[in-house]
């Protein structure tokens, strides 16, 4: 009899806890939708990083124009408050450079007959984008994006970043805690180089971004 009561009490507590969790989850999701509605009403595109679903989406008017999967994610610092962020800048060790046209020089083949695969078109393409970069949203939020890569220098950067993640960011956490300041550093690992490059290509300076990071 006692066992049954104990079991029932535990089941009741578990049920209550699940109920509260469900309510908090819905509350957070609704807050997120309200923020997205304010963006979707405006003209133009915006980015949504959903850390629960592990996706980065480029959206307009609530429609998904393009979606990239995130393989894994981790973070240091504060849970990112739900608000609209504007991207200030992108930074990468090797930023892609725009080619300059020399006036009067034949820059690219103009006839159909020419074999374009054998000619350097001198253009900025998706494959020229970095696979490891940081997106800056003011002082308090930085997002690192990387992917597994076979490129030597990028792989070296990834190793450096891993070391920094385990030494520099714990130090930063302690330092900011003592100084009563806030910061959030999020790392997104994309499944392929092309996904990381696609995110770099699509994130524009000044672009609006929403991030959904449910409480742990």
């Amino acid at each position: 009899m006692r066992r049954t009561w104990l079991f029932l009490t535990l089941a009741f507590i578990e049920g209550l806890s699940g109920f509260a969790q469900e309510r908090t989850k819905l509350y957070e999701k609704n807050q997120f939708y309200e923020a997205e509605l304010s963006l979707a009403k405006l003209r133009g595109t915006y980015m949504v990083i959903d850390l629960e679903q592990r996706t980065v989406s480029l959206k307009a008017r609530g429609m998904v124009l393009r979606k990239w999967p995130i393989q894994r994610t981790r973070s240091w610092g504060k849970v990112v408050p739900l608000k609209i962020y504007r991207m200030e800048k992108k930074s990468a060790l090797a930023q892609p450079e725009r080619p300059n046209i020399t006036p009067g020089r034949e820059e690219r083949p103009k006839a159909d007959k020419e074999k374009i695969d054998e000619v350097d078109l001198g253009i900025l393409e998706l494959k020229d984008m970095p696979v490891h970069f940081r997106l800056h949203f003011g002082q308090s939020l930085h997002i690192s994006v990387k992917s597994r890569t076979r490129r030597f220098w990028q792989a070296l950067v990834n190793v450096g970043k891993t070391i920094s993640w385990h030494i520099f960011l714990p130090l930063k956490t302690i330092w900011f805690t003592l100084g009563k300041k806030t910061f959030a550093e999020i790392e997104l690992v994309m499944p392929s180089e092309k996904d990381a490059q696609g995110v770099y290509w699509s994130f524009l300076d000044g672009q609006s971004m929403l991030i959904f990071q449910p409480k742990k």
């Binding site: 130090l171 956490t173 409480k215």
Partner: peptide, 18 residues
Amino acid sequence: LELIGYGIEIFGWSRKPT
């Protein structure tokens, strides 16, 4: 160092949202 960092994250203010 990393354990202290994680400790602050888990028990401290730093993971509390506004």
